[in-house]
Amino acid sequence: MPIRLPALSSDPTAPFPPARTARVDPDGLLAMGGDLSPARLINAYRHGIFPWYSHGQPILWWCPDPRTVFDTGQVRLSSKFRRLLRRSDWTVTADTAFAEVIRQCAATPREGQDGTWITPEMIAAYDTLHRLGHAHSVEVFDGDDRLVGGLYGVAIGRMFFGESMYSAASGGSKVALAGLARQLSAWGWPLMDAKVENDHLLSLGAQLWPREAFLAQVENLTRLDAPAGPWTARFGRLPARDLGHPPP
């Protein structure tokens, strides 16, 4: 039986349907249609909503319950991995290779997925958000300046919404996530959205929050003052070996 969903209007600033009306199966499916304009995407993220669809489908909008969330001060790395990092020559940066990171995320095979949801239209939309200073990448480079992992997402106020991450070398995405969490925590940003749970995220310390609690925090944090723009200088160059020790 076809799923009947609310269709979004042509106005990118128009309200989304209330999150409580999202479907239970599939979890969090809320609406369809609209576009991927910057105004629409920022409107969506301010309300804890994100696009997720495959090639050939209409744009689908989601707000699952529960929501997978990281406390930026509680990302968990194993003792063994921390010991390895203390000898690492890797470096973590931000907004130095956004286009490469998002394309690598799109090209990385995912267990249980046939193809990618990061379509060319999605790449173009987030490239635009990046140029406007709302989408950011975190990169991990090895000692030879080769990109070995990264992630990207959207920042509004003091809330970061993670989109995707990848590794080209073992541990690359974990270092990107831990490096981002370290910097966000230092800036006074308490949460990172990770959307939907999986075993890997849970092993790194992700928590499952009721949607209502998550949306309340999103409403508060997206209102806090944090200017849009590149993070390159603010983030700096974080030696991965520093992640082998507890934060100061």
Results as ranks from 00 to 15, higher is better:
2 P>Y: 00
4 R>I: 11
12 P>R: 04
15 P>G: 00
18 P>D: 07
20 R>G: 07
27 D>N: 15
28 G>N: 03
35 D>M: 00
36 L>N: 03
38 P>L: 03
42 I>V: 14
45 Y>H: 05
51 P>I: 06
65 D>Y: 08
67 R>W: 07
68 T>Q: 08
72 T>A: 06
72 T>V: 05
73 G>C: 08
87 R>S: 05
90 W>K: 04
95 D>G: 01
97 A>M: 00
112 G>A: 07
112 G>N: 08
122 M>V: 15
123 I>Y: 00
126 Y>V: 03
132 L>C: 07
134 H>D: 08
135 A>W: 07
135 A>E: 10
137 S>H: 05
140 V>I: 09
140 V>F: 05
141 F>C: 10
142 D>G: 02
143 G>N: 08
144 D>H: 14
152 Y>V: 05
159 M>E: 11
160 F>G: 00
160 F>Y: 10
161 F>K: 01
162 G>M: 04
163 E>M: 05
165 M>K: 08
165 M>A: 06
166 Y>F: 15
175 V>D: 00
176 A>L: 03
183 Q>K: 15
191 L>V: 13
192 M>F: 12
193 D>E: 14
194 A>Q: 10
196 V>R: 14
199 D>T: 15
201 L>I: 14
203 S>C: 11
206 A>G: 00
210 P>N: 11
215 L>V: 12
215 L>T: 13
219 E>W: 11
220 N>L: 14
228 A>L: 03
233 A>D: 10
237 R>M: 11
240 A>N: 02
240 A>G: 05
246 P>D: 12
